[in-house]
């Protein structure tokens, strides 16, 4: 009885155990909300589960099936295209905007607030707005171009495979730019102005200042921001779901939407899980890539910069 009591007290007060107790809530959270769903998803991908039936273990059958499936191949292709093209544009435009917003200019605060708008508006809402912009009949873009006399008939934005692909990429870029612009702007504002004064006296042109001072000093933050951006884009769902729902004919299907459509709407939970599990290696690769890119550069090591 006393031994039991003593052990309990030790568990309560011992430093190592104390650490464990402090970790417990966070660990429970992680287990419950991250590890369990992920594990369940992976498990389901090895079964023939359907809605209403728990399913049996069928090994790699789901994977064999989706790999041979042209729809899956298209989804993988488009997910990669979507991620690469949209991220590249978001980076270029975001960096350009950040540099622009970092200049002294009138109405700076207002312009900065305006830039944030696409980020603030709920994705579904902006997707609906784009849906109108890309409407086959009432598209404001078609209307303007017609008024300018550049085109004769309406553009079929979302009805043609490649038009639809570029349109959703455009919408994704529009939505993703503010995050990158504002993050990079925050990074730019940490750079000491005296570095630019020194560079001016050293004879650097504006381009050289960007190339040899701004860009290298910004790389750590670019790596972080772009990692997030790539992950968000790769796993995008809402925009496609609302704008095209993967159509026409699956040409804008992303792996995320395909997984949902297969598992929930098509009720083939096993296959859908296999599709979403197939995203994991891509995401891991992206994370590994940025992990090495994110490693502290040599000039960041060492004691503090007082």
């Amino acid at each position: 009885m006393t031994g039991e009591h003593g052990r309990w007290r030790r568990l309560r007060t011992n430093r190592d155990w104390l650490g464990f107790w402090f970790m417990l809530p966070a660990a429970a959270f992680l287990l419950l909300f991250l590890v369990y769903p992920l594990g369940l998803g992976i498990w389901l991908s090895f079964t023939d589960a359907r809605i209403g039936s728990p399913g049996n273990w069928i090994g790699l059958e789901n994977y064999e099936w989706i790999i041979g499936d042209a729809k899956f191949q298209t989804a993988v292709f488009f997910t990669l295209l979507y991620t690469l093209v949209a991220s590249a544009f978001k980076f270029a435009i975001g960096l350009y905007l950040a540099l622009l917003l970092n200049q002294a200019m009138p109405f700076k605060a207002i312009i900065r607030a305006v830039v944030l708008i696409p980020f603030i508006v709920p994705t579904v809402l902006s997707a609906i707005a784009f849906w109108w912009i890309f409407d086959p009949q009432f598209s404001v873009i078609s209307w303007s171009l017609k008024k300018l006399g550049w085109i004769q008939g309406n553009i079929n934005f979302l009805g043609d495979a490649w038009n639809a692909r570029w349109s959703v990429i455009f919408a994704n870029v529009w939505r993703g730019v503010p995050f990158i612009a504002i993050s990079l702007l925050a990074g730019l504002q940490t750079l000491p102005p005296s570095l630019y004064e020194a560079a001016t006296l050293d004879g650097a042109t504006r381009w050289q200042m960007f190339r040899y001072v701004t860009y290298p000093l910004l790389t750590p933050i670019i790596a972080v921001v772009m990692t997030f951006s790539v992950l968000f884009t790769f796993t995008d769902f809402q925009l496609i779901k609302v704008l095209t729902n993967g159509g026409p004919a699956g040409s804008t299907e992303l792996m995320a939407t395909m997984s949902y459509n297969t598992a929930i709407l098509g009720s083939r939970i096993g296959e859908g899980s296999a599709v979403s599990t197939a995203m994991v290696p891509f995401l891991l690769a992206a994370i590994m890539f940025s992990w090495f890119g994110l490693q502290r550069r040599k000039w960041q090591h060492g004691e503090s910069n007082d």
Binding site: P192, S194, L195, E197, A198, P216, L217, W299, Q300, N305
Partner: peptide, 9 residues
């Protein structure tokens, strides 16, 4: 410069 303004990278 007072803070030296060396290029850290």
């Amino acid at each position: 410069f007072q803070n030296y303004a060396l290029y850290p990278h």
